[in-house]
Design a protein around this nucleic acid. Structure first.
Lengths: 113, 113
DNA sequence: CTATTATTCAACTATTTGGTTGAATAAAGT
DNA sequence: ACTTTATTCAACCAAATAGTTGAATAATAG
């Protein structure tokens, strides 16, 4: 699990990839649709998606000729736990934590597996 | 602040640098002492420290010929908040959160600025 | 079968990264 | 002044990264 942290943090270090992850918060998307807003070739986005996939931050499932991308929360959670248990945070910002809870509730995701 | 996330996550992506940060949890250290346990040149460690410093994860203060390194919690906190507010975490692991609180209490840091 | 759409592969390039070594600088210690 | 200790600088190298373009593959549509 520790070696995965390299990949996870490395994947999160790129702003394009963070943007992609945030887009996927809204909904699952096909590769072409993900690429659309970016000023960058499709192949470049495809590579970013492979990086995200290798880091375990997204899952890719091919249905027909379309490859659907969706968030995989586990790696993000692992990074979260690492930082959290690192422990050198400010007294803990309960406000932002509450806000996070609120947002979770608002999203009210149907697939709460 | 967003552009700093690139540097922060990128800095956290290297295991040597994460190790250094964890060593600094114990106490502030001089560059040479930080380098000692690693199978790597002093210059390499010096570079890692510059990366950590640029990411705002540590502070370096020269006293005499020794450069002391200490954690700077702000950037770590920024990364924490980003992941937290990203919101795609599992229902929230309250156990690990409690453990984190407990550890904080145990450390009982005097400099709770 | 042919064309179109979706995605990736391959080859290439430029830049960054993580490491090395040896010299340079800075501050003490004797 | 000379030596030792602490740290960085400079030049270099190998490997990884982030991008490009053009061809290849895969699946659907006509």
């Amino acid at each position: 699990m520790a070696h995965k942290l390299n990949q996870i943090f490395s994947a999160l270090a790129d702003p394009t990839r963070r943007d992609i992850l945030m887009m996927l918060l809204e909904d699952d998307m096909a590769v072409t649709d993900i690429a659309e807003p970016f000023d960058m070739s499709l192949a470049a986005i495809s590579k970013h998606l492979i990086v995200l996939s290798n880091a375990g931050l997204i899952l890719q499932e091919r249905r027909g000729r379309v490859k659907w991308c969706k968030l995989d929360t586990e790696s993000m959670h692992a990074a979260f736990i690492w930082i959290q248990s690192f422990g050198q945070l400010d007294p803990i910002n309960f406000d932002s934590f509450e806000e996070f809870l609120k947002k979770e509730k608002l999203l009210n995701k149907p697939e709460t597996t």
